[in-house]
Design a protein around this nucleic acid. Sequence first.
DNA 1: CGACCAATTGAATTGATTCAAGGTCCGTGG
DNA 2: CCACGGACCTTGAATCAATTCAATTGGTCG
Lengths: 217, 217
Amino acid sequence: MLIQTKISASSPAPHLTCLPEAAAVVQQALPCPVSFYARDQVIYAQGEAVGPLYLVEFGTVRIVRLTADGRRQINAFHFAGEVFGFEASAEHQCYAESVDGVGIRVLRPSGGQGFGVQALQLALKAMERAQHHALMLGRMNATERFAAFLLDLAQRQDSDRVVGLPMQRNDIADYLGLTFETVSRVLRHFKDRHIIRLAAVDEIEVMNFDALEDCAG
Amino acid sequence: MLIQTKISASSPAPHLTCLPEAAAVVQQALPCPVSFYARDQVIYAQGEAVGPLYLVEFGTVRIVRLTADGRRQINAFHFAGEVFGFEASAEHQCYAESVDGVGIRVLRPSGGQGFGVQALQLALKAMERAQHHALMLGRMNATERFAAFLLDLAQRQDSDRVVGLPMQRNDIADYLGLTFETVSRVLRHFKDRHIIRLAAVDEIEVMNFDALEDCAG
DNA sequence: CGACCAATTGAATTGATTCAAGGTCCGTGG
DNA sequence: CCACGGACCTTGAATCAATTCAATTGGTCG
């Protein structure tokens, strides 16, 4: 029972504010329609054949890995202008799912040589992110992980103060290798110290950037 | 005070038993001499300009990240036949260091187009590894992490029973996001259950593969 | 308004760490 | 050849950060 629909009719120009690395790949790709996914839908599943790359037009995508007994680790979140979908093997090792309502454009290689080179740049960036993620998970405590996460979000949304949290606590927890209760407690910790303010449950105002950066190491 | 020396004189053929992915890149590269690094030497440092790729001829290399306050996370170990050295930015984000005595061949791109494509394959593999690593660090307990580590080693050394542990406990701990005491206790745990046997401090004999796989999830 | 899901908060538990004390291995020098 | 020193590893006991379990609050939608 798919609620997924296609907005294929007009197919406007690809997302204009995409990241510098992504931009190059997008320009190499043939124009394709945008698909819409409602929240918590599977974009591709573990075990499926690896297909094209995807560009996020709007919304948030999560890249998820599961252990045999169902524990969940979120490897990455992807926002508007970011590209996801590369994998080393022929089969996807991860699930890609919509966090909220998401618009996605498939990037079909135009056949030009530039595509592969640009894809390499994206893959390297993804590797770098994954390695930094490992450092967080292996060697930082709960508050440090959350501070690093928040700073990363702030930077990618290049918002100087207000940071949106489109994903729910459970997703944050599974990204940070914590429980959602712990995420909640860390939030309270930062609120109590006037480092952040919760404008809404999904919107954080950073009151003290320096303190956050101290935490994140 | 470098103890590093060059065995540049004869420059024998590159490592023959390298991994399938690595093989392609190696064949695209120009022949270069092998450098020898004694244990715990820095091959490249964080902050240095990113240079060529490297092929491990023999020995073990560790890829290390440090937090501002000196906590250490090992992102990967590389063994004979494996390639390392790619990074997304112009500056290295990690240290590459020799774990034991290591022979390394620099891979200079031959200029052919194939090099980039093969490098992409390697980068994707590295990303996949990093993501699995994140799953371990985020969602597995100490015994599970060690079991997964051991199985990974066993597979890469394709030894059916005896697995070499060229790195010391501290390195294993920093790879698994644990303390070296905990690594020691996990070893004891497995020994007590007759799942492994310690032939030497750096050599594990796997007595019960299935039990290990159960642990690793 | 009531039902439901997400988020918060509290109290008890636990897995891993920290701190501290031995033990083992190995190279060096008497 | 054996004693000594140092680095690494193992083991134990106490501590602590995060989890688990449980209860409550908050927000949203029919």
